[in-house]
């Protein structure tokens, strides 16, 4: 879509994005006022947008609308979150912040329960089972029959998983001379696991780099898509 085909709001938004992108790129030459101004604008816009979304998407339709137009049961259902939300407002006052503590305690409790339950049921148990099943040729063997590759891959994953877990095992026995040290075989496997961890960190770095590089390319492409029409008048 060329600039000429854009509506005025889209055109303004596009131009604003263009200049803000240039201001962010100025950080390549060091911290400067343009970069800081862009950051402040972004934070302000994000906060304002979040507040609007919270009002229009959460508070109004899920709290006040049922309270005003809902049935009696809906009103009773809303009463509990309404009270807790009201208690949270006391957190703004240092003197009365303790009033909001029950609401915070409720949030923390629910958050911890949800997090731990999800981790156990959604990660630990399934991933442990999946690791065990890596060598289950009957369950996950590829249809093409490359069993050797399948087993080698499973062994490698199991080796990486076990050695990585051993690396984070810091139990050691006290020795007469010197500092406590893990047994030699544990130390060896931990070093193997350290190799896997280093590879994983390298992969993560590569992923972060490529993600950032892709975002940068997108912005450069955006500048090009805006700048060239401005220059050519198209």
């Amino acid at each position: 879509m060329s600039l000429a085909d854009m509506s005025l709001p889209d055109l303004v938004g596009t131009l604003l994005g263009f200049f803000l992108t240039l201001m962010v790129f100025s950080y390549a030459f060091g911290d400067n006022a343009l970069f800081r101004a862009t950051i402040h604008i972004f934070i302000g816009v994000s906060a304002g947008y979040a507040a609007i979304v919270a009002w229009y998407n959460v508070i109004w339709p899920q709290l006040f609308l049922p309270l005003v137009f809902g049935s009696q049961s809906e009103r009773l259902y809303i009463l509990f979150p309404l009270v807790l939300s009201g208690l949270l407002l006391f957190k703004a006052s240092p003197r009365l912040s303790w009033v909001g503590s029950p609401a915070v305690a409720y949030l923390v409790g629910v958050g911890v329960a949800v997090g731990i339950g999800g981790a156990i049921l959604g990660t630990i148990f399934p991933q442990t089972q999946a690791t065990i099943n890596l060598l289950d040729t009957g369950a996950g063997a590829p249809p093409d029959g490359s069993l050797l590759f399948f087993i080698a891959q499973g062994v490698l994953i199991i080796l990486g998983t076990v050695t990585t877990l051993i690396y984070f095992h810091f139990g050691a026995r006290n020795r007469v001379s010197g500092a406590p040290r893990r047994p030699e075989w544990v130390e060896f496997l931990a070093r193997v696991g350290q190799v896997f961890i280093a590879i994983t960190l390298g992969v993560i770095f590569a992923g972060v780099f490529t993600a950032s590089l892709t975002a940068m390319i997108e912005r450069v492409q955006f500048i090009y898509d805006v700048f060239v029409p401005l220059l050519t008048g198209q």
């Binding site: 399934p126 991933q127 999946a130 099943n133 890596l134 996950g140 993560i204 992923g207 972060v208 993600a211």
Partner: peptide, 19 residues
């Protein structure tokens, strides 16, 4: 997913059964 999240999400894809 982004490439920066791939190392941590891929195990769920390669798990047996897949998550």
């Amino acid at each position: 997913i982004s490439t920066q999240a791939e190392p941590l999400v891929r195990p769920y894809y390669q798990a047996n059964p897949k998550q």
